[in-house]
Design a protein around this nucleic acid. Structure first.
Lengths: 287, 287
DNA sequence: TCATCAAATACAATCCATCTGAAGTTGTGA
DNA sequence: TCACAACTTCAGATGGATTGTATTTGATGA
């Protein structure tokens, strides 16, 4: 099916005769006639009643013309999509690690709707290493992850936020020092396979051998255990504060545990150069 | 813009490489490459990142591909529209005289939705002569009118319903005979320019010279006047009965006034032969 | 009913876009 | 660094679309 023929057909809705359409479209009457004949042949139906001299659209022909108008409009949305001057145009596949999808994603979506109407986004969740690899392979356009070493090659890394690691412990143990704590309560560890968990594991090995450990894979679940006095844990401050209440106290432990960076990773190629900074600015503005 | 190229682009959403698409679509890799290059040139954008070896869709390219899928779906609705075996497919332009649009149209629409899903309808209102002329000229596909003489040539006329003409008079004059009535009340005449009005005018000239007349162009308004004792009138029975209540009585006057026929008029050509009977049956089934 | 005219169709020649096949280039993975 | 697979480029072939001209057909008016 030829779009030029559909354009002709659609014009015939508003113009009385083939010859008039031919003039408007800068073609010969002959060409118009043949376009319509070919269209009829392809669809296997009569679009025109040729008993009458300016051939008349049949009801079916009229319907086809109206539908064709829809096809052409759909095409025009594509061309205008491509003519936008904006940087962020297209469908972006973006990965988020769990905590970032809570902290960064909502504000990002809001900013994107405001400032990047031509763009759409599809998100997927995963671990920092996986997402970084996906970006490197081209299966994702970008990802928000915690900085990991070593980063896959040819990736561009931009820091979005720094999250301080804090200790969350039951209010009943608010006064215990580190040694007492370790003796009295088990350490509840966030699943070590994730970025956070790894970071903590690395730190822990320098601190002390933990006699008792509970391993959980949910931040909310971890903190719920803390509130009930089942143990203590170490997590990024924003996550802890979100669930904090009177049953729990927060202790700053920046000397024991390093902070972590949330970063935006993109491929370091010419394509990404076109939109990397625009994407980055949509993610930081919502701070 | 070439629909075949769009098909190729859409396939690339689900298939990893140009060469795979080429195999699936029975073309050479070369042709795929050139189609995509031509598409990029036409849109003036980069749909693919050719830094990497199976060329990767850029976010914009992905968006264009997704939108293109919409274009192709729109095209498919057109082709399936044309493949329906039904008789009534397309957009029909149909004229209705005022009273028919109340009596016939609702039931017709209901039947059409049930039995002619591939058809859409656009209605216009007007006088019987005008609508009949429009059908003859091809500005309408069909019309429901009162039978008028002479009918324009080459029209096919099918009777839908017969409406008896009855007299409506105020309940206060229920016992008056025709002579008393004429002496006591003015005759309220429905606008003579319409089909009904004409019919009545023609009859009246045979009956008697009316000393007093009120002319109105609304059936409901006419009957409201009758209810209030301002005069009497003659109208089709269904219209009178719709508004009848205790303040008004109906008198059969078939000896004085002829009945009228509601008819479906269509052009008498090969095109209309295809759907005339189907349309007709949708209009009578709702009786 | 016929003559006339405008409009559409038919057809051959031509044009143009697209496809193929072969040769050349370029990422990728060993 | 090499080999290979994948893509691009190019020239030539192909086929669909357009044009110009001749012919047909429906509309109009005498």
């Amino acid at each position: 099916m030829n779009l030029r023929a559909l354009e002709t057909l659609v014009q015939i809705l508003t113009v009385p005769s083939f010859s008039a359409v031919a003039q408007i479209r800068n073609m010969t009457l002959s060409a118009v006639s043949m376009q319509m004949k070919a269209l009829e042949a392809e669809l296997g139906v009569e679009l025109f009643d040729r008993q009458s001299r300016p051939p008349r659209l049949t009801p079916l022909g009229r319907q086809v013309a109206l539908q064709s108008r829809g096809i052409l409009e759909a095409r025009d949305t594509v061309t205008t999509l491509c003519q936008r001057g904006e940087k962020l145009v297209g469908q972006f596949l973006i990965g988020f690690i769990q905590t970032a999808s809570v902290r960064i994603l909502p504000g990002f979506l809001e900013a994107a709707r405001r400032e990047a109407a031509g763009a759409s986004f599809q998100f997927s969740a995963g671990l920092s290493e996986t997402l970084s690899d996906f970006v490197a392979e081209g299966r994702l356009d970008a990802a928000v992850v915690t900085q990991v070493d070593p980063m896959p090659a040819h990736l561009c890394v931009q820091r979005l936020a720094t999250e301080e690691m804090v200790m969350a412990l039951p209010a009943t143990h608010a006064d215990a020092d580190q040694v007492q704590l370790e003796a009295q309560l088990p350490f509840i560890r966030f699943r070590p396979s994730t970025g956070i968990g790894r970071l903590i594991s690395a730190s822990l090995s320098q601190v002390s051998a933990q006699p008792q450990q509970i391993i959980l894979d949910s931040i909310e679940g971890t903190l719920e255990c803390v509130k009930r006095g089942l143990g203590y844990t170490v997590l990024p401050r924003p996550d802890v504060e979100r669930y904090c209440d009177a049953q729990m106290v927060i202790r700053t432990v920046s000397d024991l545990y390093p902070s972590r960076d949330l970063v935006l990773v993109t491929r370091n190629d010419r394509q990404s150069d076109g939109w990397r900074d625009a994407l980055f600015s949509l993610m930081v503005t919502q701070e």
